[in-house]
Design a binder for these strands. Sequence first.
DNA 1: GATGAATGAGAGTTCATTCAT
DNA 2: CATGAATGAACTCTCATTCAT
Lengths: 197, 197, 197, 197
Amino acid sequence: MIIYYSGMRYKDKNKNEAIFQATIQLLNEIGFSEISMSKIAKRAQVSPGTIYVYFENKEDMLRKLFLNVEQKISSSMFQGLHHPLPVKARFELVMSNFIEFTINHKDEFLFFEQFCNSPLIDNVYPVDSNSMFEPLYKLIEEGKEQKLLKDYDTMLLLVLIYAPVTELAKQYFREEFEFNDKNVKDLIQASWDAIRA
Amino acid sequence: MIIYYSGMRYKDKNKNEAIFQATIQLLNEIGFSEISMSKIAKRAQVSPGTIYVYFENKEDMLRKLFLNVEQKISSSMFQGLHHPLPVKARFELVMSNFIEFTINHKDEFLFFEQFCNSPLIDNVYPVDSNSMFEPLYKLIEEGKEQKLLKDYDTMLLLVLIYAPVTELAKQYFREEFEFNDKNVKDLIQASWDAIRA
Amino acid sequence: MIIYYSGMRYKDKNKNEAIFQATIQLLNEIGFSEISMSKIAKRAQVSPGTIYVYFENKEDMLRKLFLNVEQKISSSMFQGLHHPLPVKARFELVMSNFIEFTINHKDEFLFFEQFCNSPLIDNVYPVDSNSMFEPLYKLIEEGKEQKLLKDYDTMLLLVLIYAPVTELAKQYFREEFEFNDKNVKDLIQASWDAIRA
Amino acid sequence: MIIYYSGMRYKDKNKNEAIFQATIQLLNEIGFSEISMSKIAKRAQVSPGTIYVYFENKEDMLRKLFLNVEQKISSSMFQGLHHPLPVKARFELVMSNFIEFTINHKDEFLFFEQFCNSPLIDNVYPVDSNSMFEPLYKLIEEGKEQKLLKDYDTMLLLVLIYAPVTELAKQYFREEFEFNDKNVKDLIQASWDAIRA
DNA sequence: GATGAATGAGAGTTCATTCAT
DNA sequence: CATGAATGAACTCTCATTCAT
């Protein structure tokens, strides 16, 4: 589908998305060492040349894909986060949002983790790599001010609550952990125990 | 060290190690997508052909390197772990061993994380991927039996204590977190709070 | 000749043929043990990568080249073969067609012989390797029915007439035999004597 | 087995032969394009270095192997050839010797044919390539003097009798022709008919 | 915008050969 | 004599990218 917009001709959103999806899938199937523009093109059912209509080069495409996925994760994670709610309620909401996103978006999530653990991430964030968790960071600082949370380094507290989620998600996709209701509740409880004063 | 027997020239342990070190360094510098056997050979100061004297192919080399690093991490982590010690003391020992290893073996650790988050890991462990943490798994089960720890899924408790360590180590190498004495103490304390009954 | 359709750049028949000719020439000059895709590309004045636009791999290229040459030989051999002609006349026509083709297409012929005598031929014909001579086979059977030819195994009679031609052609190219009018006439006569009743 | 000979230490005949046999087998299995010194060494159960004790290089080894096989064929072919026998009897003896050798020495024969049809043959015989058939050549000339054979070019007559044998042998090994007693008799008869006056 | 033929560079791997033992 | 580790060149093939259409 091509959208015309006040005299301007827009690129086909579907092709862009098809390229993104093909890349995410292939990266999870064969990894960075084996992926190639031709394979991506074949999977996305476009010509190799077409990718260069949408992106400057391979690096540019991967960077834009990463930022796109990061945006999706971030907006899902903080969905429905109204300030009036007390700190603990907001913590629980963010945690369930995050868990829900990961288990429902396997490909995006695993791509994100693979990318973050590779040196490619250095080309994306020359300065700061945790802007995605900014609202959560703020929430923890608020909790510390209210003496609800431990007076530890904020980054330490931040990691204590998100690292287990991502790690358990990976175990879940390897079928070595089950994300049933009890486990979700337990995870949120234990995470709270880790950081509460 | 080269060992000679009659009529043979034996494989050089140093060459094997040089190839491993070159691979680890390059993977952390440029990643899986940019690494190549020629670059590894150049960094290790051997001929490209020489790598194939020691390993069947690229995949075989990476797999053997991974298992080698995993062995190093595992043996460091459980160093000095005598059974007579109480559960909490053993927990604290394992945690500090683990933290100490990661911050003192940047290259090995980051390679390990990158590898674990790539699809290559699937070729290494067709069945079970947490054998490295087996003694820690057992320790948690013992703690659960003694009612010291929460009666949660053991994998959940396991992840709650190791995931923050690896994540903070990565932040540390990005200079976004400091591993001073207080932070180490706090991390161990918070992890214990997360899992204790 | 390059044919363009809208929005596409089409494959160039000349490039395909240039690759075939370069391969035939090089195989006759240096043989299977020394030939390489790079050498072929250089001789054909294309990039090494270009060969892989036209063929899947080396084996595929050689197989297609072989079938192409076989087709040429076969169609030359049976050119002008009208059924109304008596058996002997048809025999003589096929023989002179065959002789003429071989001495006028040195490269194709020598490539064909080299290929047929290598194990590569097994990958081309999994079942039957004499389809090229099918019409000649039929002609011999007709001659046997008319009691013109010996009542021997048809394959035996077939080989008796084509094997000397190919062998003499090779001697001719080594300048150890001359294909003058007398020798051609003698060869055809002797071959007829071999098979006639 | 190592043979010591008046103060000189001889090379191991078995190793030499093992290298020859390995080469012949591999050439028939995978051909000149795929063969390599390492593969030959592995098949012969010797070290790659050992081949260079016996031969100067690959080309030297192949040339010596070819001459060795040619010698075997030639001596088998003219075995029991006493001059007192009449021309036709000698012809028949040579033919049966030749047929018998080919069908009983598949590997040597197919290697010989493959080698003769490749440009490698040019490096072996810079001048004359039919010395192997010298006695047969002489026999034909004798037959021509006795007016028993056609007064054709001797090379032509020579080829008329040996080319069908080699070609049928190849068909035999592809299981497309049967070398039973009748066919052998028929082949010899037809060959005689081809050349007799 | 979209195509895919075309490319030279470089990928992983094997090569013939050497030589210290 | 025999070994096999070691090598750099060369192998087959794929790469990211370009560009005429």
